[in-house]
Simulated assay, not measured.
Amino acid sequence: MTTATSITVRVPLAIRHRPGRKTVVAPVGQDTTPPVATRADPALVKALARAFRYHRLLDEGRYSSISEMAAAERIERGYLGTLLRLTLLAPDIVEAALNGLQPKGTALTAMHAPFPLQWSEQRAAAALCR
C-alpha cells in the first residue's frame, strides 16, 4: 500500500493594491519580464471609453437623441451628457489619461466640472495642475 504524500510549494510574492485591480509582483531577480508601471485612473479610462462609444453611436445614427440613448442604455440623461462632454477634450489630454500620464487635476471627478472648450485653454489648465 502506498502512502499519500503532500508537497508544499512556497512562492514569494507581493500583492500591490491599485485602484480597481490587484497586481502580483515577483521578487527582484525572479522574473525576466519588467513590471507594468501604470498610474492610469481606471474610472477615467472607463468613462472615456464609454463616452467615445456613445458618441460613435450618435454619429452612426443608432440613436437620434441623448434622451433616447439614455433610455435605451438605462442610464441617467444628465450623466450621459456629462460623459459625452469628455469627447471634447484635446486628443493629447485623452492620450495622456489613457497612458496614465494625466495631470493631477484630470481625475474623473474633476472632469465632471465644466472645462474650457478650446484645446489650447484645456492644455493651459492641465499644465497648471501638474
Results as ranks from 00 to 15, higher is better:
Ile15Asp: 08
Ile15Gln: 06
Arg16Ala: 14
His17Ile: 06
His17Trp: 09
Arg18His: 13
Pro19Asp: 15
Pro19Lys: 15
Lys22Ala: 11
Lys22Glu: 15
Lys22Gly: 15
Thr23Asp: 09
Thr23Ala: 13
Thr23Pro: 02
Val24Leu: 13
Val24His: 05
Val25Gln: 15
Val25Ser: 13
Ala26Pro: 13
Ala26Cys: 11
Pro27Val: 12
Val28Asn: 15
Val28Cys: 08
Val28Asp: 15
Val28Trp: 10
Gly29His: 14
Gly29Gln: 14
Gln30Thr: 10
Pro34Lys: 13
Pro34Gly: 10
Pro35Lys: 15
Pro35Cys: 07
Pro35Ser: 13
Pro35Thr: 15
Val36Glu: 09
Thr38Arg: 02
Arg39His: 07
Arg39Ala: 12
Asp41Asn: 12
Pro42Arg: 12
Pro42Leu: 08
Pro42Trp: 06
Pro42Glu: 13
Pro42Thr: 07
Pro42Ile: 05
Ala43Arg: 11
Ala43Val: 04
Leu44Asp: 00
Leu44His: 03
Val45Gly: 03
Val45Arg: 10
Lys46Ser: 04
Ala47Ser: 06
Ala49Arg: 01
Ala49Ser: 06
Arg50Trp: 02
Arg50Met: 06
Ala51Met: 01
Phe52Val: 03
Phe52Met: 00
Phe52Gly: 03
Arg53Gln: 02
Arg53Cys: 05
Arg53Ser: 06
Arg56Ile: 00
Leu57Ser: 00
Leu57Arg: 08
Leu57Ala: 02
Leu58Ala: 04
Leu58Asn: 00
Asp59Glu: 06
Glu60Cys: 00
Gly61Leu: 00
Tyr63Lys: 04
Ser64Lys: 09
Ser64Pro: 01
Ser65His: 03
Ser65Asn: 04
Ser67Trp: 00
Glu68Pro: 01
Ala71Glu: 14
Ala71Phe: 01
Glu73Tyr: 02
Glu76Leu: 04
Tyr79Trp: 04
Tyr79Pro: 02
Gly81Phe: 01
Leu83Tyr: 02
Thr87Gly: 13
Thr87Pro: 02
Thr87Asp: 10
Leu89Cys: 07
Leu89Gln: 02
Pro91Val: 05
Pro91Arg: 10
Asp92Trp: 02
Asp92Phe: 03
Ile93Met: 11
Ile93Asp: 10
Ile93Gly: 08
Ile93Pro: 01
Val94Gln: 10
Glu95Lys: 09
Ala96Met: 02
Ala97Cys: 10
Ala97His: 08
Ala97Asn: 12
Asn99Tyr: 04
Asn99Gln: 10
Gly100Cys: 06
Gly100Arg: 11
Leu101Met: 09
Gln102His: 13
Gln102Leu: 14
Pro103Leu: 11
Lys104His: 07
Lys104Phe: 04
Gly105Ile: 09
Gly105Asp: 12
Ala107Arg: 11
Ala107Lys: 02
Leu108Asp: 04
Thr109Trp: 05
Ala110Gln: 09
Ala110Lys: 11
Ala110Pro: 01
Met111Tyr: 04
Ala113Val: 04
Ala113Asn: 10
Pro114Gly: 08
Phe115Val: 07
Phe115His: 14
Phe115Lys: 14
Phe115Ala: 11
Pro116Ser: 12
Pro116Arg: 05
Leu117Ser: 08
Leu117Pro: 03
Gln118Phe: 04
Gln118Arg: 13
Trp119Lys: 11
Trp119Ser: 08
Ser120Ala: 10
Ser120Asp: 09
Ser120Gly: 07
Glu121Ile: 06
Glu121Gln: 13
Gln122Asn: 14
Gln122Phe: 13
Arg123Phe: 03
Ala126Tyr: 03
Ala127Asn: 15
Leu128Gly: 04
Cys129Ile: 07
